[in-house]
């Protein structure tokens, strides 16, 4: 007989405190979910991918910690907040996803592309920094070559960098200080 192994969720594999942890990280209302699926039905990302908001919340409630935090799908939410506005139970599913991402980042599952963007903020103060082409464009429009932001004010950039050191963000995103 074939054992339907993949479909069996074993009680001893569940982390019963997981949903509590998610609640503590900022998604207090996760327990209110009644699995109606309004979130999944509203999701522009789920329309074209296998990402299912309802399922993610179900797995989190069950306590499938590793499966949830290591899932690539966790990064498919565009934070459009449609599900949050429509959820009939006020679960705030987008906040659940943000909390799960926070936990995933801490557990070492942050994606390289996101580390890179974060690194830009530490290095330049901007997630999208100015480049040569844009400097020229700015000048041709009669604007300063660099905008009056951390790109121009070095002391300000230093503040941004010090803040990321103080909060430990530099370590979280594996930023290499030269």
């Amino acid at each position: 007989m074939v054992e339907p192994k993949n479909n069996v969720i074993r009680l001893d594999e569940l982390d019963m405190g997981f949903a509590e942890d998610v609640a503590k990280v900022g998604a207090e209302k996760i327990n209110l979910c009644i699995q109606c699926g309004t979130c999944t039905a509203s999701c522009p990302s789920g329309r074209r991918t296998a990402f299912r908001t309802r399922q993610l919340i179900r797995r989190a409630l069950l306590g499938l910690r590793d499966k949830v935090l290591s899932a690539k799908d966790l990064w498919l939410c565009t934070t459009c907040y449609t599900c949050l506005e429509r959820c009939p139970r006020g679960v705030d599913p987008t906040d659940v996803i943000l909390a799960l991402r926070t936990m995933a980042a801490k557990a070492g599952h942050m994606l390289d592309r996101h580390k890179m963007v974060s690194g830009f903020v530490i290095k330049y103060g901007h997630a999208v920094p100015v480049n040569e082409e844009n400097r020229k464009l700015r000048a041709s429009l009669g604007l300063s070559e660099a905008p009056p932001t951390t790109h121009t004010f070095k002391e300000a950039l230093k503040e941004v960098q010090e803040i990321t050191k103080k909060t430990g963000f530099d370590k979280l995103v594996c930023f290499e200080w030269k």
Partner: peptide, 26 residues
């Protein structure tokens, strides 16, 4: 009035989900 020395907001969907206290401080 120009906000001299301002930085990235920082981007809500990304930074807020990585590390809330960094997002709030920046």
């Amino acid at each position: 009035k120009d906000m001299e020395g301002a930085s990235c907001c920082p981007a809500p969907g990304v930074f807020k989900s990585f590390h809330q206290s960094t997002w709030l401080a920046l």
